[in-house]
Amino acid sequence: MLANIAKSDEHYVARFERQLKHSATEIWSFLTENEKLALWFAELRIEDLREGGLIKFDMQNGTFEEMTITELQLHSVIEFTWAEDSVRFELYPNSEGCLLVLNETIQTLTPHTPQDLAGWHVCLDVIQHLLDGTTLESRDAEWRIWYEQYREALSKLG
């Protein structure tokens, strides 16, 4: 299912939801432990897990972008800067396991936005597969499918 993309007064919010059959603690480990984080987003590394702490994004050219953790509630919320935007993961335990919500607040839509949204979409699918002990056949093929759908969805937003 595509993320819900909504325009507010001064920005856009893309909201992804995944109902997972796993505990918040299990899911949290994939969001905050570098060994597990690397399995679904190899370029990210948490340097200091605390509010005001640091996450580094490896640009794959010898440089790193630094992102600040703006909110942290253990096993519940991690939010961090992403250039001029922000990324927020929220966990909601329920009778079926846990609802994982990812909100990306986007200041300006660009031609790169559908690429990013497709990337987050596939990352969440990979997390689910990792937790379930299954494999996603081709991340690239999945990304291409979702990229076209996000490109189309964003074109309708204007």
Rank of each mutant, 00 (worst) to 15 (best):
L44N: 05
Q73H: 12
P93F: 03
S29F: 05
R45G: 12
F64S: 05
I69V: 15
L91R: 02
C98D: 01
S29W: 04
G52F: 12
A6F: 01
I106K: 00
S8N: 13
F64Q: 07
A42F: 11
S95V: 14
V101R: 07
W82K: 06
H11K: 15
T81K: 01
T32N: 07
E79H: 08
E84S: 14
I106P: 00
G62R: 09
Q19V: 07
A24V: 11
K56G: 12
I46L: 11
D48C: 07
H75K: 14
Q19W: 03
E90A: 08
Q19N: 13
W82H: 10
D48N: 13
N61G: 14
R88Q: 12
K36M: 07
Y12L: 09
Q60T: 10
A3Q: 03
Q19I: 05
P93Q: 09
L20F: 07
V13K: 01
M59N: 15
F57E: 06
M59G: 06
E71I: 03
I46S: 07
E47D: 14
R50N: 13
I5A: 02
F57Y: 14
L2D: 05
T63S: 12
Q19P: 10
D85V: 00
I46R: 04
Q73W: 06
E84G: 10
V77L: 09
K21G: 11
T70I: 09
V13W: 00
L20P: 04
